[in-house]
């Protein structure tokens, strides 16, 4: 518990650090939302000055930061110039959609990676080994963007799945069960892109970890006691291989999140990705900070979950942290 609390505190410090640093970086970038208007002969210098003072852009940097922190506390997270409303309410539905995508992809990727990697670990020679090695190497070599575009092309050509967005036209009129099915159908493409992107990495790690565990003396001892193979795998090898995999779980969440931002843009999934891109292009200052902060929060929570799992899985770590 002490250990978890300490990790949570680290996470909090990280959040504060990221917020301050990204605030500073975005602030240092040249221009702002109103810079483009300067080129417009219909907007006068005076109007611009009024606008900027209304949004507080003429205040010194520390003051603007403190005001933003205060609005964070109110859940507003600053003000979007483009949308003309606080960032918070814009952000939450996007966070929900991104979470839906990444959590589904993470769960699916791990549910496939563990049995596949464990199976591979028991086949060190022969066609299974060669086949899996080839397929994972090919997938690893394929950039995420190419993968996503390829899937999009496939969907457009075949029409098997909706090729973009999160809901069909007329979604609002559907019955509850139809709506779920509709979202699920829209999920197929982006989730496939994400899973195919991370699966080869995960499978290779699982294979290496389980193969090491299978070579461990206690696994040989278990076999020597006549323990059946499925118990050797599920009670001995997998639990012993779990530690690095759980740590990898936290990392995989980070990887999926960043890939997800890209895939969302390509497949027009209404998550944090398109919002972030739009905000950067428009130099919509606080709207850039929102997704950055939300992503950091998701990452920190993912790693906390991994830490909690690690504590649950390994008695030696529990003993060291007591």
């Amino acid at each position: 518990m002490v250990r978890l609390a300490r990790r949570a505190l680290h996470g909090l410090l990280l959040l504060i650090g990221v917020s301050a640093l990204s605030f500073l970086l975005v602030e240092l970038a040249p221009g702002d939302y109103f810079a483009e208007m300067r080129l417009d002969p219909r907007v006068s210098e005076a109007t611009l000055r009024t606008l900027r003072s209304r949004y507080g852009l003429d205040r010194p940097l520390p003051e603007r930061y403190l005001r933003w922190v205060a609005s964070l506390a109110r859940g507003e997270l600053g003000y979007s110039f483009a949308y003309g409303q606080p960032v918070g309410p814009l952000l939450w539905p996007r966070v929900r959609n991104t979470l839906l995508l990444t959590v589904t992809a993470t769960a699916l990727a791990w549910m496939l990676a563990v049995p596949l990697g464990a199976w591979w670990a028991t086949r060190r020679r022969g066609p299974v080994n060669a086949g899996l090695a080839g397929v994972t190497a090919a997938l690893l070599a394929l950039p995420d963007l190419v993968l996503a575009l390829g899937l999009l092309l496939l969907a457009l050509r075949t029409g098997w799945f909706p090729a973009g967005g999160m809901v069909s036209l007329g979604h609002e009129q559907m019955a509850w069960s139809e709506r779920v099915g509709d979202v699920a159908a829209h999920l197929v493409l982006p989730v496939t892109a994400l899973v195919l992107g991370i699966l080869p990495v995960l499978v290779r790690y699982v294979r290496a970890g389980v193969a090491d565990a299978l070579d461990a003396p206690f696994v040989r001892a278990a076999r020597a006691h006549g323990i059946p193979p499925r118990h050797v795998m599920f009670r001995h090898a997998l639990p012993a291989a779990a530690n690095p995999l759980i740590s990898l779980f936290g990392l995989s969440l980070a990887g999926l999140l960043s890939t997800s931002l890209l895939v969302e843009v390509v497949m027009s999934w209404p998550g944090l990705g398109p919002l972030l891109l739009e905000a950067i292009l428009a130099r919509d200052f606080y709207l850039v900070l929102g997704p950055v902060l939300a992503s950091t929060l998701l990452l920190v929570s993912g790693n906390l979950v991994a830490d909690a799992l690690l504590l649950a899985a390994d008695p030696r770590i529990r003993a060291a942290g007591r």
């Binding site: 461990a216 003396p217 206690f218 001892a221 076999r223 006549g226 779990a242 899985a313 390994d314 030696r316």
Partner: peptide, 20 residues
């Protein structure tokens, strides 16, 4: 194995699964 012929390995620190 284990029922009729069993074995005691050299290093008990390695012969037991550390997480169980």
């Amino acid at each position: 194995r284990g029922a009729e012929v069993s074995i005691i390995f050299q290093d008990p620190a390695l012969a037991l699964n550390p997480v169980r």
